[in-house]
Structures are given as C-alpha cells and as structure tokens.
Design a binder for these strands. Sequence first.
DNA 1: CAGACTCCCGGAAACGTTTACAAGAAATCA
DNA 2: TGATTTCTTGTAAACGTTTCCGGGAGTCTG
Lengths: 355, 355
Amino acid sequence: MGRKRLHESTDGRPTVHTVAARAGVSIASASRVLNGIGGSEETIRKVRAAAAEVGYVPNAIARSLQSQRTGLVALAVEDIGNPVYVSMMRAIEAVVAASGRQLLVHATGGQIANETSLLRRLANRYVDGMIVSPIRVTDDHLAAVVQSPVPVVVVGQLGADAPVDNVRTDSRQGVALAVDHLVATGRRRIGFVNGPLDTVPGAARDAGFRSALAGHGIVLDERLVEVGDFQYSAGRAAAERLLARARPDALVCANDLIAVGALHALLAAGRRVPEDVAVVGMDDTELAQMMFPQLSSVSLGSAERGRRAAELLLQRIADPALPPRREQVPPSLAVRASSGAAVPTPRPRTEEVPS
Amino acid sequence: MGRKRLHESTDGRPTVHTVAARAGVSIASASRVLNGIGGSEETIRKVRAAAAEVGYVPNAIARSLQSQRTGLVALAVEDIGNPVYVSMMRAIEAVVAASGRQLLVHATGGQIANETSLLRRLANRYVDGMIVSPIRVTDDHLAAVVQSPVPVVVVGQLGADAPVDNVRTDSRQGVALAVDHLVATGRRRIGFVNGPLDTVPGAARDAGFRSALAGHGIVLDERLVEVGDFQYSAGRAAAERLLARARPDALVCANDLIAVGALHALLAAGRRVPEDVAVVGMDDTELAQMMFPQLSSVSLGSAERGRRAAELLLQRIADPALPPRREQVPPSLAVRASSGAAVPTPRPRTEEVPS
DNA sequence: CAGACTCCCGGAAACGTTTACAAGAAATCA
DNA sequence: TGATTTCTTGTAAACGTTTCCGGGAGTCTG
C-alpha cells in the first residue's frame, strides 16, 4: 500500500528507480548499465532509452555517500586577490587535475572564524582532502585541522610539531636575502613595510628583518618600520606614514602588493626608484614583472609549495596511515630594476621583461 | 547475528550510531541532541559527553542526502588570475555569505570541456546552485546549463533566448565609450588589442570597435587590429606585433591585463604614454589603478554583475519555479592618466590615487 | 481521579546510490 | 544428456543522517 508510492513522486527529479521502472528492470540492473558494468544488450538498450527519456542525471551526493569519496579537493586561502595565491592555486590545480579530481577554492578573507567553519563544514566529507594556507593560527584552528575527518595539508608555518602534513618556506631567510642584497648594493637606511604582526608570516618577517640588520651590524631605527596589512592600499598607506617621518634609501616590503603600494607612495612623494630608494617585494608574483620599474622580489616558491602540498595530499588520501611529513622550500631573490644600482627607471632592460 | 556488527566497525570513524550506543540512547535522540532540538537535560548531557569522547564529527554528505541541500554555492570562471573575476567573486561572496552559505570557486582555465564537466559534476547536487561565467559557449555547454539539476545563473552573454537566468553587460557599448573618449581627445589612429575572436566577449568587442569607429566616420586600418588572448603576456606580444607594423596614437585593449601588456610594449618601444599613445583598458580592475601611468579603463560593472547574479541565484534556490530573468548592467568609463591629454607620465594626480 | 495535554523517547522509514549475494538461464564441455 | 561454467538478473543491505509517528510517562485541569 503506502509502500508502493515509495519512489513515484510525480514532482521530483528522476532517480535510478524511475529509470528502472520505466525500463522494466531492477534498480541494480539499471545502476549497472548506467555505470557501464555488465548487462545484456537488450537491458542496456532499454535502460539507456529510459534514462534519456526521463532526463536522468545521477545524484552525486548519494553516490558519494555510498562510495565514500567525492572526487573534490579544496584549497582555502586568505585572499584570492593576492597573486601569490593564484600561482599557488595553479600549481595545485595541475596536480589535482592529473589525479582526476577537481579543485575548489575558498577565500576566507582572513577571518579565522570563517576558516575554521570552512574546515568544519567542507572537511566533513564534502571533499576528499583539503589544503589550507592560514596566516593566523589559533588553538581552535589547529584542533579543527587535526580532527578533520579528511586529510588536510597545511601550507605555511604551523605549531612546531603539530602532527600535520606541512609545506613551508623560510621567510626569515627570505627577508635576509633582501636585506643582504640591499646592503651589498650600498643601502644603509633600510625600511620595512610589513603586514600585521599577529599573523604568522608577519611575525616571521619582522624577526627576519631585525636579525638580518643585526647581522650586518646595522642599528635599526624604529621609525623605518611600519605595519599595514597584506593588501595594496593598506601597504600604500603604511608606506606613506613611514615616508612622512623618515627618509629610507631602501624599502623591504612583506609582499608584492605592499611593494606596489610603496612604489606609489614613493613616486607620489617625489622619490625616484631605484635612484633615491630601492624597493624589494616578496612572493615574486606576476605583478612584480608588470610594474614600472619592475620589482625585485623574494620568491618564496609559492608554486613549488603548492605543487608539493598537492602531492602530499594525494599521497595521504591514498594512504591515510602515512606519518606526518614536513617539507621546506628555500627562498630565492629575483633582482630587477627596482633595486638595481642605477638603472634608468621607466625603461626596463629587455632581458628582464617576460616574453 | 551479522545484523549486530552493523555499525560497530572498529576502524571507521564514529557515527551517530556510535554516539548513541555509547550514550545509551537511540540514534534518533542522539541526532536530536546533536542538532539542538529537544532532549531532556540528562539525555543532552549523556549524548554531548559521548560525542566528545569519541570525537564525533557529522558526515555532511549523509546530512545533505537527507536534507537535499548542501549550503554550498559554486562560481566557475575562466581564469582566477584575472582581477576582474576577483572583484566579481568578492561581490558574490558577500551576498552568498549573508545567506549563510559558502562560496567555492573553480577556475576552468578556459577549457570548455573542463567547464561542462564541472557543471555535470558539481551541479549534480554537490552544490545548491552555481554561477558560471563562460567565455566560450557551445551547444553542449548550453545543454549542460539548461539540464542542470540545481539552479544556474550565467554571467555574460548566452544564446539569445536560452531559458536561463542571466546577467550581462553591453561590451559593444563599452568599447564605444572608449573610442568616443579617444576621438573626443583628438586621437585618430586608434588601435585595438583584442582577445580571441571565437570567444563571446572577443567577438562582441571586435564588433563594438568596428561599429564605433564607423560611427565616427573613421576608416579602420586593419593593421591596427591585433588579437592575442586575455592574458598579460599574450597581450604584450600582440601589442608588440601591432607596433611593429603600425603607428597608432591610441590603443583600446580588450581587458586590463592586455592593457598592461600593451603599456610594457609601448614603453619598450620608446613611446610615451599618454603623450604619444593613449591607452584604455577594460574591466576597470584594481590593476588599472596600480599601474604607472594609471590606466583609463571601461568598467563593465563586474562587481555589480556578480552581486546581481548572486541575488538571482538565491532567489531561484528559494523558488525554482520563477521564470528566467535577464538583467543588464551598463558600462562606464573611468578616465585616468593613460589617456589624459597631456598629463605627465610618472606622477599620477593625487585625486586619482586610491586612498 | 479520569481525561486531556505535553514532553521525551525509540523504531523505522527515507534520502539515492552501489554492490554482495544468490538464483536462474544459457552456454560449454565431457 | 548431465554436470559445470558463465552470464545476467533481482533482492536486499549498506553508506550516515534526519524525521515521522506512535507509545509511555508525567503534569495539568475540571
């Protein structure tokens, strides 16, 4: 009686039951045909026809519940407007796509609540695995990562010995590369425009800057240090504040967006780059090459870190029992016009121009 | 017998059965407590404790199968490296987040197969709805959109009367705005660096350029038209080819990335911007303001289009029976230094600088 | 104190799919 | 022809959750 109405809802979308009924076979046979395994010619024909007639499209959620996988992988980053994450994403995408999965990206906007909620939501089986690149880390956050039901790989620094797959770089050393280069080219009043100190990269870069200066025996003038956030306009504002009270002969910037902001601030203040002030950015994004003058920038290997993170993730999905691994990608410095000794500003040298 | 082992797998993660058994209540009660509906104090205490002890985390896939919704919305775009999609994404994100849902982004890389496969996969219930912004449209593609089991909103041009929610702009008119402006400021040899003609926006902008010139009675010199793709480096290469064979006094570029490439090509060729050649980009992205000189650019209202698309999507999710709607956002022109009459190049006027 | 009402609980159905298992039919082989 | 294998099919369990429904205990009301 009531039993009979089970899968005959007139309004809803067709299910495998609908198809099976229409084809006059069992749902098992229908499912098998639709998945291309087995079935006599006659059955195959009938099921295919029935499916086409009713416009059957399988429900991926139900399939995933059964198969315990979704074929989806997620990447959570702060700010997708930052080109460093774009290159990281492209690298991840390539690896993930090669494994037949699809990559989804979520921008958390730097709100930690947002990121943990994402972890709690997506990681609860909507995706087969997840790569997160947090810039702030709290205990709550770390707990969410560790407890996640699906594999999670972290790009960036995490608690010292959290049992989590982790790909990092040494951004302290990265800042040191920039400082060394500037000192070697004769700069002494080196300023620093950083992101927030309560972020992991912000803190690391601050420490790196101080220790690098100390390594050269330079006493840091605190007026040469300013903090904004990791965006263009805040970077510009921070640089303007700095320039209003001090006269640096070089600026190290905590990422390329800040560096572009600093470039604007400098030119608006009538300082020439690099003649009066050298500028070095960080992350070595596409943006660095798009600017005038082209920006020197410290590469933190974002594409490489993304690639490795994706590989770690796929390995762990294949074998969840693996021990936690940690990989490190070394920074390197790309010297371009913005920190060249006496390169004329507006005309980049041809060999530095991307082809 | 075998019946008893049902939910006692020793290896797997805890389920609501595990929690219920441990708390000594039924799964119904456990579920109710975990969802915060009903339950005596005693039951609530026991279930909460049991859940905490076993580290229970609900399986979102199973929940979605039951509830027929996931709380996720997807956005599929070509190239997430293009800042125009970043601003669109931000606008969408704001609307979607306000509805308590999460936004996921997928970059299709312009491969049409990729996009239809995404539609076929994600739209099959992994998400509650989807916004797609295709630049190439095939019949197959259109069929995938129309047949999608979940609501889909298209940003951009689609077949004339496809029964699909659609938010578009008039990019022909957008190009006309640029041309009108250049003509009004005395330019006559106006070149055009476009994206691929087999894309919807590429074709529309080509048509717009030609008809705008014709509207001013200017005969188009075909050597002033060049095609690349919508990326920076291809745009630069295209501009170089154009400059090698013609001497424009202005360049209209089909988007801001191309415009930046053109800027490089011009400066590398020793032409001053805007004194020798005026440049106008398209999309009015953040990038336009980051360049030297700051780029004039035609805004196609990407943020507004995103916002409207998100609203249409949410409305349709709430009521799938709505008739298909179409909205249009008018273009507008932001004039900056790159097309100013005689503004000195390196120093942008302060009022044009973002604060 | 009987009846009505509320509250809490457990059994079981339901979401839509895949798949283990067993049984029946057909084909092969000795 | 009888036994064995192969192929196809259908029944039903399973994935993990939510929720309808009915029953039982307790409380209120007249």
